[in-house]
């Protein structure tokens, strides 16, 4: 038996917004630790990893590990029926062929009950090696969203460069070029501020497909801050924390010299 009750149902709605356009369907793995899902886009350029730890839920029960193979378009349609302040409960049997979703309004005067049929998804789980990143940058998530959107007008590639105390985003195309630099702020505890941490103070610059960066920013409402981690010739990590008990992370393979 699996049952997970999420007081802040909007978290699930927001997380799915950040997933559904990248991954058609995925295995949502439920265990006593929580719920996790990983998947790649059809071109295998970006890996998306969602983690919802059991502490995120006010009630969580998972007697045996359960895999929920969910079509994300269908899941999203159902979640759109939930109000932002609804409590969402997910329920499934031990070897389920369907998952039950229950939405309760905040004042408990409306309940909606949905059943989503599960699908068998043949999908490999990838191991993500521990990496020492050359640069870790935290920026307001709305600022990152705006930069990605603005630079997409110039071309299909965005170059992210980190040097001491500064992160620079640039794009070049037929209509011209653009360069947006964010300087590190003094007080890094504030969500409105920018922080830049570097290993060995070595500047780092990588090129990425703007289309994918824009997909990632669909998760902006999950967190005030987004963390970018860069390492030469490695995938970029774009992380949105879900409070203290979850995260939505994207790994984007870089564009490299052919």
């Amino acid at each position: 038996m699996f049952e997970a009750r999420l007081l802040q149902g909007s978290i699930l709605k927001k997380a799915l917004e950040g997933i559904r356009e990248l991954i058609t369907s995925g295995n949502w793995e439920c265990s006593s630790a929580g719920i996790s899902m990983q998947g790649m886009d059809p071109s295998h350029v970006a890996l998306t990893v969602l983690m919802l730890q059991n502490d995120l839920f006010d009630q969580f029960r998972c007697d045996r590990n359960v895999t929920l193979g969910l079509n994300h378009a269908t899941f999203s349609k159902i979640l759109k029926c939930a109000a932002n302040d609804d409590i969402i409960t997910l329920k499934a049997e031990d070897q389920p062929d369907e998952c039950n979703l229950l939405f309760q309004s905040a004042n408990d005067d409306k309940t909606s009950d949905f059943i989503i049929k599960l699908t068998d998804i043949d999908q490999e789980t990838l191991g993500i090696p521990d990496t020492e990143y050359a640069a870790t940058v935290k920026v307001p998530s709305v600022e990152f969203q705006r930069i990605c959107r603005d630079l997409s007008q110039f071309g299909d590639t965005i170059i992210i460069s980190v040097k001491k105390g500064c992160v620079e985003f640039s794009g070049t195309g037929e209509i011209g070029s653009a360069k947006i630099a964010l300087k590190e702020s003094g007080n890094v505890d504030d969500d409105e501020k920018v922080s830049v941490e570097m290993d060995k103070d070595t500047p780092c610059s990588l090129s990425f497909a703007s289309r994918y960066l824009n997909y990632f920013t669909k998760a902006t409402s999950l967190s005030d801050t987004v963390t970018l981690q860069l390492c030469p010739e490695h995938p970029l990590v774009v992380s949105y924390d879900i409070g203290d008990n979850g995260s939505l992370k994207y790994y984007l393979a870089p564009k490299i010299e052919e």
Binding site: M40, H44, V45, L126, G127, P129, P235, A253, P254, E257
Partner: peptide
Amino acid sequence: MLGQAKISAFFSPK
């Protein structure tokens, strides 16, 4: 000329 790398070049199945 830049080419798009794939995730499989960096991460392997568990």
